[in-house]
Design a binder for these strands. Sequence first.
DNA 1: CATAAATGGCTAT
DNA 2: TAGCCCTTTATGG
Length: 282
Amino acid sequence: MPEGHTVHRTANQFNRAFKGCRLRVDSPQGRFASGAAVLDGKKFAAARAIGKQLFLRFEGGHELRIHLGIYGKWAWHELQADAAGSLTLPEVKGEVRARFWLEPGDAGAGDTRSAVLAELRGPTICEVLASHEVAVVERRLGPDPLNPDPSGAEYSRFAEKVGKSAKSIALLLMDQSVISGIGNVYRAEILFRAGINPHTPGKALTGEQVRELWRDSVELLKVGVREGVMITRDEHLKRDPGKAERNHVYKREGQACRNCGTSIAIELLSGRKLYWCPGCQR
DNA sequence: CATAAATGGCTAT
DNA sequence: TAGCCCTTTATGG
């Protein structure tokens, strides 16, 4: 489920499975055939995530940019080599835009990493860029709470943009140039946890509130990376309680708030569903 | 079966 | 603000 935590998990998986190896790349669906031809057989240098975007760097300055959009998904398969050392790839099911895997032996002698294949379906973006093109994309992305921020500079960038804006904080949290990696679920849940009315203009928030929104984004996204699902209730942060119990307000419209009993509200904001509790978020 | 909805984001009006 | 793209999954008849 693609908010920022998913993409960071994928970056970690790519680094664990493939970093420094010569990758095989193809496009069963055909829609990434030209990109696959460029990357196939090249050495994979490293993966990194910025918000919802994944960047896979290859030798020769090629960088693959992937954005899952709403529907995009990764699937990972274990691969078995036969006695002769050759691989049988799994049968392609559905629309597979791209696949990535290692040839046996390419991970290097003594390497114990299991052979895996990564399958990509339904991304909004899957394109090979040169590094100057990557820089253009990077420039318009806001700070990502999951990336290290030892100096606090990333937080300051966030606070400054929010503090100057007359737009509602609900819109600002979904704006990837303000903060990278928050989507519709985390937006609703983070605002609930902070007890902030989603319609409050950014500039009307106190410094304390802005700091809390950032701090909580860092905390919740980290839980998401660790658990692989978006859990936002304190009593369940350590273990996934199952879909129906994960969140405070997301997809709970008309139900009683777990905290105050008020009926959870839903409204359309810029074409996306906004969930919140009018009792707790005043 | 068919249809709607989904954790996004771009572009045109 | 509306339309469009991408694909799978859940729901309803």
